[in-house]
Amino acid sequence: MSGNGNAAATAEENSPKMRVIRVGTRKSQLARIQTDSVVATLKASYPGLQFEIIAMSTTGDKILDTALSKIGEKSLFTKELEHALEKNEVDLVVHSLKDLPTVLPPGFTIGAICKRENPHDAVVFHPKFVGKTLETLPEKSVVGTSSLRRAAQLQRKFPHLEFRSIRGNLNTRLRKLDEQQEFSAIILATAGLQRMGWHNRVGQILHPEECMYAVGQGALGVEVRAKDQDILDLVGVLHDPETLLRCIAERAFLRHLEGGCSVPVAVHTAMKDGQLYLTGGVWSLDGSDSIQETMQATIHVPAQHEDGPEDDPQLVGITARNIPRGPQLAAQNLGISLANLLLSKGAKNILDVARQLNDAH
């Protein structure tokens, strides 16, 4: 009898209710805020589980004197976190989706994509230029951005401005803007500013005609071990179906173009009346040469937790077992079709030249 009692006690200790789920994140304040929001949602869904947040620095956090596009290494903000995932030191990792490459290392998958916040870019102005827009900034004003995508589009749109690289986390960039006289304004992701509670610093939100956004911008991705079915089931509740389908289309477009950090590629997606609209573009580094096109596809946005595919093969690095396969494939095909259209119009040449120029500098 006593033996059975011990077995029952052991089973209770090993039951999922007692389990601590370890969540990996970057150390920056924004990353911690984003991770806290994901953990809060998981806690609400699984009140019996405990969650421990483990923060670590990544290569991208450490190399702050070089433009991201020049470092010449993929997975700048993800490699150390993936290493911890691989060694079973954490069970899942919360990322900004735009930091996750469209091809993940073997053994990993994006197990959830959370509801997207505003994906557009924002302009934050130096205190002396508050009330201005990019259009009304004085001639030769210097605007800071760490992104080739932003610089290429904005140089084309605002030729009277000069664009220079600015690195560091959000706090560091804002301090550089406010305390030094080098920059009249800087460009940042609206979602990051909003998550930090800095709505009052948003001086201008850039519309798609001015600057399309990065693939996955404004959404959070939760990376897990691809074979860890328990954790895949656990994080599945975080999937937002519309965000998922938009981001599958965007990531398929980028992957098929073979774009990345070192080339200016941008997108804009919208879901309306059962249609998914995808606009994508590529630019030369100075913005003088560009190709942009829009395509659409009829896609039914499923309700969360309709029964999805059981075999769960990944699409552009994403596993969404609780979302039907048909809409996911339709979104992926839309991204591939748009990429093929741009490639047929000469996108590869623009991107190759951009890559060579970026590598040469």
Score class of each variant (00 low, 15 high):
residue 20 V to A: 09
residue 22 R to T: 11
residue 22 R to F: 10
residue 22 R to V: 14
residue 23 V to E: 01
residue 24 G to D: 01
residue 25 T to C: 06
residue 26 R to V: 01
residue 27 K to A: 13
residue 29 Q to D: 12
residue 30 L to Y: 04
residue 30 L to H: 01
residue 30 L to P: 01
residue 31 A to C: 01
residue 31 A to K: 01
residue 33 I to V: 08
residue 35 T to A: 11
residue 35 T to K: 01
residue 37 S to E: 10
residue 39 V to H: 06
residue 39 V to Y: 10
residue 39 V to I: 06
residue 42 L to C: 08
residue 43 K to G: 09
residue 44 A to R: 13
residue 44 A to E: 12
residue 45 S to P: 09
residue 46 Y to H: 13
residue 47 P to T: 12
residue 52 E to I: 12
residue 54 I to C: 03
residue 55 A to G: 08
residue 56 M to L: 14
residue 56 M to W: 08
residue 58 T to Y: 01
residue 59 T to D: 14
residue 60 G to D: 04
residue 63 I to H: 06
residue 68 L to Y: 11
residue 71 I to R: 05
residue 72 G to I: 13
residue 75 S to P: 12
residue 77 F to G: 01
residue 80 E to S: 09
residue 81 L to V: 08
residue 83 H to V: 11
residue 83 H to K: 12
residue 83 H to P: 06
residue 83 H to Q: 13
residue 86 E to I: 13
residue 87 K to F: 08
residue 87 K to W: 12
residue 87 K to A: 12
residue 89 E to I: 13
residue 90 V to Y: 05
residue 90 V to E: 06
residue 90 V to T: 07
residue 92 L to G: 06
residue 92 L to W: 01
residue 93 V to S: 04
residue 93 V to Y: 03
residue 93 V to T: 06
residue 94 V to P: 05
residue 98 K to N: 06
residue 99 D to G: 04
residue 99 D to R: 01
residue 101 P to E: 08
residue 102 T to L: 06
residue 105 P to C: 05
residue 106 P to T: 13
residue 107 G to V: 09
residue 108 F to K: 01
residue 112 A to R: 01
residue 113 I to C: 11
residue 113 I to H: 01
residue 117 E to Q: 09
residue 120 H to T: 14
residue 120 H to D: 10
residue 121 D to L: 03
residue 124 V to R: 03
residue 126 H to E: 13
residue 127 P to M: 03
residue 127 P to G: 07
residue 127 P to R: 13
residue 129 F to C: 07
residue 129 F to L: 12
residue 129 F to Q: 13
residue 130 V to D: 15
residue 131 G to A: 12
residue 131 G to Y: 11
residue 133 T to Y: 08
residue 135 E to L: 12
residue 136 T to C: 06
residue 138 P to S: 11
residue 142 V to L: 10
residue 143 V to E: 04
residue 144 G to L: 06
residue 145 T to G: 06
residue 146 S to N: 13
residue 147 S to T: 05
residue 148 L to K: 14
residue 149 R to E: 01
residue 150 R to Q: 01
residue 153 Q to L: 07
residue 155 Q to F: 11
residue 156 R to G: 08
residue 157 K to C: 11
residue 161 L to C: 12
residue 161 L to P: 01
residue 161 L to A: 05
residue 162 E to R: 12
residue 163 F to P: 11
residue 164 R to M: 12
residue 165 S to L: 05
residue 168 G to I: 01
residue 172 T to F: 09
residue 174 L to H: 08
residue 176 K to P: 01
residue 176 K to M: 12
residue 177 L to F: 05
residue 177 L to E: 01
residue 177 L to H: 01
residue 178 D to S: 10
residue 180 Q to W: 06
residue 181 Q to M: 10
residue 181 Q to N: 06
residue 186 I to D: 04
residue 188 L to V: 01
residue 190 T to K: 10
residue 190 T to E: 03
residue 191 A to L: 01
residue 191 A to G: 06
residue 196 M to T: 06
residue 197 G to F: 07
residue 198 W to C: 13
residue 198 W to S: 10
residue 199 H to D: 15
residue 202 V to Q: 06
residue 204 Q to D: 03
residue 204 Q to P: 08
residue 205 I to C: 13
residue 207 H to W: 14
residue 207 H to E: 14
residue 210 E to D: 09
residue 210 E to I: 15
residue 211 C to R: 01
residue 217 Q to S: 09
residue 217 Q to A: 06
residue 218 G to W: 04
residue 219 A to T: 06
residue 219 A to Y: 04
residue 219 A to K: 01
residue 222 V to L: 14
residue 222 V to M: 08
residue 223 E to P: 04
residue 224 V to S: 15
residue 227 K to T: 07
residue 228 D to N: 13
residue 228 D to S: 08
residue 230 D to V: 11
residue 230 D to Y: 07
residue 233 D to E: 11
residue 236 G to E: 01
residue 236 G to L: 05
residue 237 V to C: 04
residue 238 L to R: 01
residue 242 E to I: 01
residue 243 T to I: 08
residue 245 L to Q: 09
residue 246 R to H: 05
residue 246 R to S: 13
residue 249 A to K: 04
residue 250 E to K: 03
residue 251 R to Y: 01
residue 252 A to P: 01
residue 253 F to E: 01
residue 253 F to P: 04
residue 258 E to L: 03
residue 259 G to H: 01
residue 260 G to W: 05
residue 264 P to Y: 01
residue 264 P to S: 15
residue 267 V to K: 08
residue 269 T to Q: 01
residue 271 M to Q: 09
residue 271 M to H: 15
residue 272 K to N: 14
residue 272 K to C: 06
residue 276 L to T: 01
residue 280 G to K: 09
residue 284 S to P: 01
residue 287 G to L: 05
residue 287 G to M: 14
residue 288 S to D: 14
residue 290 S to D: 06
residue 290 S to L: 08
residue 292 Q to N: 11
residue 293 E to Y: 07
residue 293 E to V: 07
residue 294 T to Q: 01
residue 295 M to C: 04
residue 296 Q to E: 11
residue 302 P to K: 05
residue 303 A to G: 04
residue 304 Q to A: 15
residue 304 Q to D: 01
residue 305 H to D: 14
residue 305 H to K: 03
residue 306 E to G: 07
residue 309 P to S: 10
residue 310 E to D: 06
residue 313 P to H: 06
residue 314 Q to R: 01
residue 315 L to Y: 01
residue 315 L to V: 03
residue 315 L to M: 09
residue 316 V to S: 09
residue 320 A to K: 05
residue 326 G to C: 13
residue 326 G to Q: 01
residue 327 P to C: 01
residue 337 S to Q: 01
residue 337 S to V: 15
residue 338 L to D: 01
residue 338 L to I: 03
residue 339 A to S: 07
residue 340 N to W: 15
residue 340 N to P: 01
residue 340 N to T: 10
residue 340 N to S: 09
residue 345 K to V: 05
residue 345 K to E: 01
residue 347 A to C: 04
residue 348 K to Q: 09
residue 352 D to C: 01
residue 357 L to K: 10
residue 359 D to H: 13
residue 359 D to L: 06
residue 360 A to P: 01
